[in-house]
Structure formats: structure tokens, C-alpha cells
Design a binder for these strands. Structure first.
Lengths: 342, 342
DNA sequence: TAATTTAGTTTAATCGTTTAAACAGATGTA
DNA sequence: TACATCTGTTTAAACGATTAAACTAAATTA
């Protein structure tokens, strides 16, 4: 790689000190610098195509204008959409984003955190993994600015931006009950993560409030693992092979829904005729499904923008903690059209 | 943010110079350093939870172990999948990835390039935008390591990893012709980008080789713009309102296909009965479509891994240029099942 | 005229590493 | 005894920026 132009190069070409060059290019002390000199410096900088070395600048300023984004998997549309929003929002304030995928693994998440800390990121936006409390406490103890997104740990006092997951799941379940469904299955992850626990609770409480005798066999919890596809398929099969099979399924994530729906589709089960479906998260796939899916739309844009805003404020020394829980929108479409009365 | 532990802190605690600490922690001069001292230093480093400041290290070494990834849009599944592969591959060699979305805009791409160069990235993986030749030449002139991905400029001698787009489109078209289709529409972008030109050429030449009288009205080129959805819908409508409507459509990108298929679906057109469909790129949506889509599967994993490998070799001073064109796989499914003879 | 202020610029330290070169003391060699 | 070699460590410069403080010369004030 070609040697880059430094302040020194400009300084020696113009015949001044690097200090003066720095002052001019940063528009400091502008009152005291001779106009001709300032002009000459600016011209020379342009001529030599000078660009400031942010690494050197970062070292001196103890600030990198970089934020670390840690998600489960950047290739998951939910996270990549979030990444795009965060990128744009950060860019407006001249920050760049370094990202890492932690695969829902707290240990990997910690490794990633440290890698990014070594690179002196100014702060983090993190979708924490299950059992990631110690990671988060580590950040707190070291006074490192961060915002949790999508999930949070209620026992830890931190910034976070999440969905009102309880309410979202409750309203989805209620919607199913308002239709002709009353045996409603849930397919979710086996995890202690609050966002998914809340989704489960919302579902359960909606059933309870509607005086539906809740069958524990309706709730299928799938391990986040490599063979997840298989596990989801089993879960679907079990729900449909119950003595009284479920007449609706609520999926608590896009990935679960994708695996589940493929399987349901391949078995020739008709939606919404045989089975109603609601999913969390917007998916391209659900638009193209023959029965466009009713889904819980997350306000991803607001989420990403808010998280970035809170993080940057915290970096700029805001002390108050901000916790935001956003509303999902239930987008009602074909997959929950009340079945012809039967 | 809490003050971080530096070499100096370790040095003064142990009572040695920072040089010695650096040597020990980097396992250098190990033959000459007293074992007890080395041990003490290592222990103290661990005790103080020392982590090396990569910004300082980068400044000294003139190397950041960071690669810049510039794509059209990180939220496009094609690019986010690529990003994930690149992330994993880079991580194996202790590199991290900074990304930026250029929105298929050469100017924005250049701005992004400079932002990342200011941060002293060691090299780039770039999906260049239309008219991005000057950006690429800039990198060449400055001897900055980079690899183009997905697209390339044939007149510029550079590293690149792309698809054999011509062959892919040719084989898709041939497949349609081998079925009962012979009036085949193409929906593609209006762009000079070679990858898309090649897709068009492959399509055209397959028609020519099969002695199909090519109707210029079959080829719809849509501007990459905000109202793209509308433009695609118009294109679809026009193809279907021709005096002799097309009986198949080949979409040259996932986004085009998504817009097009939604529209086709909403018009109640039956696939493959009324219309056969082939798309470029794997989409979740195509699995869930009632007629799972025949598509051209790109070897994204190989692409990302290869691009990263080539980039890192170039960074490590490899001089030879590597150009790889990978084969797509035509995954044949329902959307091109030969219509019942009629 | 002497003292003070102002304008314009430079000096030099600093951020946290790395590393060539210097150094001091012990040991070996002629 | 004098010199060379080896061992273990330190010194100090460098990377490229920022910035408080110092400095000089000219202008202003008393």
C-alpha cells in the first residue's frame, strides 16, 4: 500500500509546523491564523489529497467514533435490517459500525465484545444471548456505554429497546381466539431469554383470560441448535397428532416460522382452512405464501434509530438510563381468516 | 468509560520497562528473558485484566487487521449472507469487518471507501456500483488491496469473484425452452453492470441458439430507484398484455422477483399453469410459495470464503491477480413444471 | 520610553504500542 | 589481565495526530 499523506507532509511543503496545519484543518484558532497561510495549507491539503488518519486521531482523542454491533446472526433478516438502520443512523453522526455474530452463544458474545473493545469501540448495541448477564455486568462495571436491543435482562439496570413482547403475543392469541380457533399451539425457543418468555406468557395469559383450558402439550419449546429444523418439524407433527389437534399455531420467530411453514406446506395442510397461523417478524416469504400470513410487525426502524440515539447520547456522557418497550402491530391477513363455520 | 490498563501499568507494578512487558506478552526474545520475570509479567497482566489497545498497536504497526466490506445494502439477504461468511472467514485470521451500504450509488460508495480508508482498513471486499470504475481505479493506483465480489469491470485488471452469469442465465432460459415455454420474458435492471448484462446476454443467446424469434418487448429493464416496485409491476403487466403474452419470466435478482411475484400472485395468475418462473438467488420466500420456485442458486459460501482468502493473501503481499467465476446451480422445482400440454 | 497586549506561530508532550539499539554486568577466552 | 561474548534489561524513537503552553515580534497603552 502506498504511503499516505500526513500532516507532516503538508507542514513541510508549506513550511509551517504540523500544529498549525492541524489547527487550520480543524478550523480551530481561526481568528489568529493568517488568512494567506490558512488558505495555502488548505490548498496543499487538497492538492496532496490529505485525509486524516483516524487511527492516530483516535489514539490521541481516546475516541474512535466506532460502535460495536453484536447480534445473533447478521444474516438473519431481522438483524440485518436492524444493522442497516443503525448504520444509517450512526453515519449521520459520523460513526461507523463494526459488527459480529454471536450465534446466540454467551461465550462467543463475550469473545466478540472483547475483540471489539480491543479496537476501542466507543460503545455497543447488543442483542444479548441467553445467560449473557455476566457480559452485560462486565460492561456496566467498566462504565462502557451500551444499549441492549431486542432482548434485555430485567434484573440489570441498563439501557434497552425492546418490543412489548407480552402484549404482542397476547394480542395475536386474542386475535386467534376471536376467530374460530380455540386450540392454539405455540412454537418457541427453549430459552430463558425474557423476550421469548414474555411471548409465551402473553400467549398463556390470553388463553387463561379467555377461560381456555390450557393444554401443556400445546406449547412446544425448541432448542436453538443445528438440528433446529428437525426439531421444529417434530414439534409441528406433535401438535397436529394430538388427540385433539391444534387449529392454530403461533410462531415466536421468523426462523421457527420458516421451518414450520415449509413442513406444514409439504404435508398439504391448508391454511387457514385446516390451520391458522401467526408469526412474529416480517418475512418476504409471508407475502408470497398463498395465504399471506398474519404477523406481528416489529417497528425495526424505530428500534434501530432509538437504540443508536440512546447509545450516542450515553457516549456523550448522558447518565440517565433509558428503557423503551415498543408496540408491535398485528398485521391481519389471510392466514387467520376465520375458517368457514364447521 | 473507565481508564484501561496499559503496558505502563503492568510495567510499573512489576518494576520493569514497558519494552520488557511488550516482549513478554508477544512471546518475543523469549530466550533472553528471565523466567521468573516473564511469569510475573504474565501473571500481573492477567490479574489486571490487560488487553492490548489495538488502536495504538495499529498505529505503530501500520496495520489494523480490519477489512472494509462495501455492498449495495446490508439488509439484502444476498449481501447479509455474504457478510456473515466473510465475517467468519475473517475472524479465523483475527480480522474484523467494518461494513457500509452504498445503495448502488458510485458516489456514496466512494464516500464510504474514504471513510473506511481514513480508518486505515487493510483492504476491501466490494460489490461495486454502476459507474464505479473510477473508485476501483483509485484503489489500484494507491495499491490498496481489494477484491470485487458479485460484479466486476472487465476492462480493469483486478481480483474478483463473481458468478458465471452468462452461463447461469443461459441454462435457466434453456430449461424454460426445454419445457413448454417459448415466449420468455426477462425482468432485469437497467444498468451497465456486467453481471446483469451477462445475465441478459445469456438469456438472449439461449433464445437465439434455439432459433426463437426474439421479441424486444420481452426484455424489461427497470431502473434501480425508489419506485422500483411500481416499475416492476408495470413491467409484469406489459409482458402479460402483449398481443402474444409471455409464458415464462426470468427475474435477474431476488428483489425484482419479490416485487414481481407479489404482483403476479395478486392478479391470480397461476404458476406454473399460466406462467413459468425462474429467479436468481435463493429466497426464503420461494420455498413457501405454493409452487416452490425454480431458481439459480449462487454458491454464496464459496464466494465469500474465496473473496476473503484472496483479499488476505493480497494484504500479505501476494502480487498475482485472481479472477474466479463460479457456477450457479439451477434448482428445478414447481414453478417451471411443464404445463399440462394444451 | 517602558510595559503590556495582541497576533501569529512553534515547541513539545501525549495517546499506547513496538522494536532497534544501547547498556551494564556476568561469564568466557586468549 | 585485557578483551570478547553473552544475558537480561532499558532507552528512546517512532507511528500521526492534538493541544496546552511557550515564544516572538509587532502593536497598543500608559
Amino acid at each position: 500500500m502506498k504511503k499516505k499523506v500526513s500532516l507532516k507532509d503538508i507542514a513541510s511543503k508549506v513550511g509551517v509546523s504540523t500544529a498549525l496545519v492541524s489547527y487550520v484543518l480543524n478550523n480551530q484558532k481561526s481568528g489568529r491564523i493568517r488568512k494567506e497561510v490558512a488558505l495555502k495549507i488548505k490548498e496543499t491539503a487538497k492538492e496532496l489529497n490529505y485525509r486524516t488518519n483516524q487511527i492516530a486521531r483516535s489514539l490521541k482523542l481516546q475516541k474512535t467514533f466506532t460502535i460495536g454491533l453484536i447480534v445473533g446472526d447478521i444474516s438473519n433478516p431481522f438483524f440485518s435490517s436492524l444493522a442497516r438502520i443503525i448504520e444509517d443512523e450512526a453515519d449521520k453522526k459520523n460513526y461507523t459500525v463494526i459488527f459480529g455474530s454471536a450465534d446466540e452463544n454467551a461465550e462467543k458474545s463475550f469473545k466478540l465484545m472483547n475483540t471489539l473493545l480491543d479496537r476501542q469501540v466507543d460503545g455497543f448495541i447488543i442483542a444479548p444471548a441467553e445467560n449473557g448477564e455476566s457480559n452485560i455486568n462486565y460492561l456496566k462495571e467498566h462504565d462502557i456505554p451500551f444499549v441492549l436491543i431486542d432482548r434485555c435482562f430485567p434484573e440489570i439496570e441498563t439501557n434497552w429497546v425492546t418490543l412489548d413482547n407480552y402484549k404482542a403475543a397476547y394480542s395475536a392469541t386474542q386475535h386467534l381466539l376471536d376467530g374460530s380457533n380455540n386450540k392454539i399451539g405455540l412454537i418457541t425457543y427453549k430459552t430463558s431469554l425474557l423476550n421469548l418468555q414474555d411471548r409465551k406468557k402473553g400467549y398463556e395469559n390470553a388463553l387463561k383470560d379467555n377461560k381456555i383450558a390450557y393444554d401443556i402439550a400445546w406449547c412446544k419449546e425448541v432448542l436453538f441448535a443445528d438440528n433446529m429444523k428437525l426439531l421444529v418439524e417434530q414439534a409441528v407433527d406433535e401438535l397436529l397428532l394430538l388427540p385433539e389437534p391444534v387449529d392454530a399455531i403461533l410462531f415466536t420467530s421468523n426462523t421457527l416460522a420458516l421451518f414450520g411453514l415449509k413442513h406444514i406446506h409439504s404435508k398439504g395442510i391448508k391454511i387457514p382452512g385446516n390451520l391458522s397461523i401467526i408469526t412474529f417478524d416480517q418475512m418476504d416469504a409471508s407475502d408470497l405464501f398463498y395465504a399471506p400470513l398474519t404477523y406481528l410487525k416489529q417497528p425495526i426502524e424505530e428500534m434501530g434509530q432509538l437504540a443508536t440515539k440512546i447509545l450516542l447520547e450515553t457516549i456523550d456522557d448522558k447518565k440517565e438510563i433509558t428503557q423503551v418497550s415498543l408496540e408491535a402491530t398485528l398485521v391481519i391477513r389471510e392466514s387467520t381468516r376465520a375458517a368457514p363455520s364447521s
